[in-house]
Design a protein around this nucleic acid. Structure first.
Lengths: 248, 248
DNA sequence: CGCGGCCTTGAGCAACATCAACAATAGTGG
DNA sequence: CCACTATTGTTGATGTTGCTCAAGGCCGCG
């Protein structure tokens, strides 16, 4: 957390994105035991589940990106969360009723399906499971609070920077060691807008600004962080918060 | 759930706010077993816990209103959730690290304290507990997603209406039978602004508008719903969502 | 190589913020 | 019970951010 006085870096850089070697497989992310019947693939652009569906299963995301979103009657949309491998998705049984949000596969996706009916018996074999579920949900909540703060109180520029920083950091936590400064971020500018409460047009302008200032480049889903320190500064995030994103 | 075809009402009125007789005590809301050592009172205006505090306990809110909030370095604040009796507050152990949000008592408050150290043993006696915790967290998440949608995609007018409708509905679910259309809502206009991502000045203007249109009156913490149907309409909420607020 | 989806840019405008002064309220101590 | 004070609410004038509308360019894919 301390030292690591890298050249132009504030020090946060080294601490936040350690270059440790790590598993390239998805092995570490199966929080729920996987059952053979359970694996399912969903192709990019399709819904894992939709608003109003009566969820009778929860999903453990094994591979790919998923966006959780809500929708108003008139079509306005809000992305409320991005899920990366390891996430647990879906509606708990008896939080009865329909899902109030949908789940869109941003890339081709693999999930392992745990039917709600199986949840109770599963918990008997593995009594730690509900508590892990609770922790996962607590983390989702925490992230949602963060987004709320961003959308409610930050400027457009700050919001976009914040989102990019968050996604980059969370992604990088999964595949450390890869070329650090570049990644595939499977989002359109419209989706960034839906996540930040902005128009795609305005997102575009903000991104132009960040590109001209040589902080970040984002073009057709290719993200490149040019100046991590300034990005953190623009996003207005304290390092502690960033580390919280990394927890599971 | 059906009938109750009240005069000018669309019918939603009766469905949403059933006038059933109900427990006036808080008996029903102790989701966690209560331990004698645990009860604690906090007076209005004080923090239950603060941003950055290392939560070593979780709280079951027995009585009073609590606001969960975050804060940016420069003082901008965002209220991310309102907790009513029955809520479970605090940070789970090993979602280690500090709380990223604080908890402000809006009224005098009674909580029962469950030290994290006790959580594991408690779960052995009562194996249902972690699952109940998970459900509570899932509900918080759901609410947070709702707020995100509101702040991200609704106009100021819609946001304020939405918040009032939510709080009124949740409150009324606890004390049904009381004078339906009036309640004490322990918020300042500034706090409403902090929850909706608006300025207190603008909140004031919106409230003025709603008052002139005889939809809602809110003055020094006294809330009066004049036209529930139009409030629902302005808030742009489907009844299903409202019912979701009522679940625990 | 042509088509559809995505990005880019400009001009004008609406919603909300900011700043500032003042009024109403409720809580306080005499 | 009253006077005083701090807090909260109200209103107007003005400024800025981000939205809307619209046209055109770029990219990737079939």
């Amino acid at each position: 957390m301390t030292r690591c006085p890298r050249s132009t870096s504030t020090g946060a850089d080294g601490a936040l994105w350690p270059a440790a070697a790590a598993p390239s497989s998805t092995e570490g992310y199966r929080l729920l035991p996987r059952y053979r019947l359970g694996d399912r693939k969903i192709e990019a652009g399709r819904d894992l589940f939709s608003v109003g569906s009566t969820g009778n299963a929860i999903f453990n995301l094994i591979d790919g990106w998923v966006a959780l979103y809500t929708q108003l009657e008139d079509g306005r949309r809000q992305i409320v969360q991005f899920a990366l491998p390891g996430a647990i998705l879906g509606v708990l049984p008896s939080n009865r009723s329909q899902a109030t949000f949908g789940a869109l596969a941003l890339t081709d996706v693999v999930v392992s399906v745990i039917p709600n009916s199986m949840l109770a018996t599963l918990s008997r074999d593995e009594p730690e499971l509900p508590m892990r579920l609770a922790r996962s949900l607590a983390r989702d909540c925490s992230l949602a609070f963060d987004h709320l703060t961003s959308i409610g109180r930050r400027s457009a520029r700050e919001r976009v920077a914040h989102l990019i920083l968050e996604l980059f950091t969370r992604y990088r936590a999964q595949w450390p060691g890869n070329r650090i400064e570049e990644m595939l971020l499977p989002l359109t500018q419209e989706q960034i807008g839906d996540a930040t409460g902005l128009t795609s047009v305005h997102v575009n302008r903000v991104l132009s600004g960040l590109r001209k200032e040589r902080i970040v480049e984002f073009h057709y889903r290719r993200l490149r962080i040019l100046d991590p320190d300034r990005l953190i500064e623009v996003a207005g995030v304290e390092p502690e918060v960033v580390t919280a994103w990394l927890e599971r």
